[in-house]
Design a protein around this nucleic acid. Structure first.
Lengths: 69, 69
DNA sequence: GGCGGTTGTCAAGGGAGCTTGACATAAACG
DNA sequence: CGTTTATGTCAAGCTCCCTTGACAACCGCC
């Protein structure tokens, strides 16, 4: 499960800490998700999608997706 | 976090056990998700969406969604 | 009556998600 | 030089997700 969180965050010029505050989670959790240590829970994935006004499928990618570009 | 799993399963005439097999999880997990005991992980939510050929947002609903209709 | 199939639920265990607190590194700035 | 900011990572702990195994209740059918 890959994700485009780091890219989306960079587009908005947010630090990990700032994103964490907006999501209501810790900075370490943002970092862990960005670096691929684990996937967010489904409710958190919805909050992330809502924050960026995107669909979950547009942020989190099945492992095959976007691999062979 | 509500979901339409029971409805989708009924449309296909699958038992909880049959759905569990198709998803690669236990029958108890299917039951727990249907009865709202907890939300699936994000990877599992993707498998569910793939199985029903729907988007995650069309199966799992934010708590407000569909509540005040 | 008994039997197979489905569902709900409990217990106990393990791994994943998230927390706080701390520390190290690097870059930017005075 | 020192300070601040951003990032990566570790440890310890708690809750949530998912497991296996079991049991009760219900239904339809013989």
């Amino acid at each position: 499960m890959k994700n485009r969180l780091r890219l989306l965050r960079a587009e908005r010029d947010w630090s990990q800490g700032e994103l964490a505050t907006r999501l209501g989670i810790s900075r370490q959790s943002v970092n862990a998700i960005e670096t691929g240590k684990y996937d967010p829970s489904l409710p958190l994935a919805f909050r992330i999608a809502d924050l960026f006004a995107l669909r979950i499928e547009d942020i989190f990618l099945r492992d095959e997706e976007g691999a062979g570009e």
